[in-house]
Design a protein around this nucleic acid. Sequence first.
DNA 1: CTGAAAGCGCTTACAG
DNA 2: CTGAAAGCGCTTACAG
Lengths: 338, 338
Amino acid sequence: MSKVGIKDIAARSGVSSATVSRTLRNPELVSKDTRTRVLKAVKETGYKPNRFGASLRTQKSGNVVVVMPDITNQVNAGIIRAIESEAHKAGYSVLLGDTQNQEEREQHYADMVSSGQADGILIFTPNLPFTLQENKPVTEQLPPLVNSCEEIDNEDIYKVLIDNKAGGRAAVQHLLDLGHTCIAAVMGPKDTPSTLERLAGYKQALTEANIEINKNLIIRGDYRTVSGIEAMEKLLRLRHRPTAVFCFSDDMAIGAMNALREYDYRIPEDISVIGFDDISYAELMYPKLTTIRQPLEDIGRNCMQLLVEQLKGNRPEQKVIKLPFELVVRQSTGPVPR
Amino acid sequence: MSKVGIKDIAARSGVSSATVSRTLRNPELVSKDTRTRVLKAVKETGYKPNRFGASLRTQKSGNVVVVMPDITNQVNAGIIRAIESEAHKAGYSVLLGDTQNQEEREQHYADMVSSGQADGILIFTPNLPFTLQENKPVTEQLPPLVNSCEEIDNEDIYKVLIDNKAGGRAAVQHLLDLGHTCIAAVMGPKDTPSTLERLAGYKQALTEANIEINKNLIIRGDYRTVSGIEAMEKLLRLRHRPTAVFCFSDDMAIGAMNALREYDYRIPEDISVIGFDDISYAELMYPKLTTIRQPLEDIGRNCMQLLVEQLKGNRPEQKVIKLPFELVVRQSTGPVPR
DNA sequence: CTGAAAGCGCTTACAG
DNA sequence: CTGAAAGCGCTTACAG
């Protein structure tokens, strides 16, 4: 690696380093003649301004950091895509922080903001990796920040959310409408806000239909495929098997369908399956998966837009953006068997 | 955001900023007493050293950048996971650069190395985003760098690869072994090294079996699901339909299976389908997808290890690491219908 | 339109 | 064990 600095360019083109900097940042301040000379030298040497020098001076990094529990799952994939393209529009680079569900790594990425490596942060976990002092207003203590997907328990934070409870309720209502009364739930990871909400929706729908909640029909999962398989295997052992299963994620629903096929059940003739998310593989399954669609792209776009507003120094009035979910009926759900 | 600097800590604990820095970087150089005082001040204020100041001084960023055409697909997902955990072990942070197949963005991420924001780079596209001068040795002109998945046409670069040609050949040989003679190929994006290699393997296997190459049976795709659907639809219109299809990616194979089901073909009784990659969804399909497995985790791990060696200042003798693929026979391939 | 100079926040060789 | 000082590579207010 050749290490070309601003001084080399200055020397090469016979101007001061100030003029080189101006040529690159504010070319309109420089005469056409010098500009040409400087740019020639830049091109010849392949000079790139050292970001640390610039950022140290300007106190801006031009980066935003995204903190996600698992960057490789399909839900986050859809969100990331939108974040990236929106950030790009606003002139920011995205640093993707995969926490692998480790608190230490969450902290690590949050520190990138504290240490100036990023100007703002998008948080998709339910924890706020910044310590707050009680006596000061929250907004003054936090960097530009938006929270989404897993709600942080703090009213003063900007958020982009869907109504998980209503989503859960809609999923179960769909099954009730098909005549099911023995409906199982496969939950996500313990104590995550999204799971608790969806569970509340599940319970609400059943209660409204005068159906008693049966604890044996509620299984803990972790949103991943394997846990869907295991949950389904547990359910199939029950004396009174469910005729329909509401999985709190598509990945678990896909696992559940695989377990059902393994044991020769027909979907939906024997057992109906509904998921949550509408990842791209949902409609590629056989049978195609009925699910509650999260507007992944909208979530990503809104998150970034809300962050960019803050980066501009604005403090939008509206703290929370609620986005709509949608029941997508496909082939994995059908009338209750009789 | 409170902006606490090293001077604030120095003042608070009654020492010089040099001592604060030592306490944080080389605590063994500082007396226990001062160390305690400094750490107390750090904790109370939540001070994080500004990365730009430090990096400007040390000329190290502690970051590596990963350049990928699409961070959200499942092949890359598997690779990223391994890269992240390996980087973490070596004390590096990973900046994920999704290029969305735009050359401009590829350049942007490469510039992060040129501008000092990253100390090394992992490139999963076939283009080298650095200009080389002919008269100097290549290694001296490049930063620590490893190339994988899509081979860059340069012998002096460190690479982690699988034998795509042999992989393609193995896929077709599997179909030949099942008695198929009319075998279609659904290729990836035009001119990508991986696709050209797999195609060469396809042709080699057929030629060895004395089967003539039929251009109508070779369709262009782009590795994504939709292109698999479209390719299959084209193939089904042919007067002499293939009895087996080799898709150069699992996503396209999944698309192809969906198209087949749409038109009431049975898999594999009517038409066999084989993919390439073995993404996690491959074995969750119905029928479960037969495919050529890429060792995604191994690829990621080896890439990062090879990069870390270079970051340490070493220049390993072996430039290319070849990793083995594996034919995974599942349910989407079967004997030729008679 | 251009240059000299200050300074962003650190780290580290040097001196004590 | 600790401090004063230099300097990493930029940008920009100021002066001309």
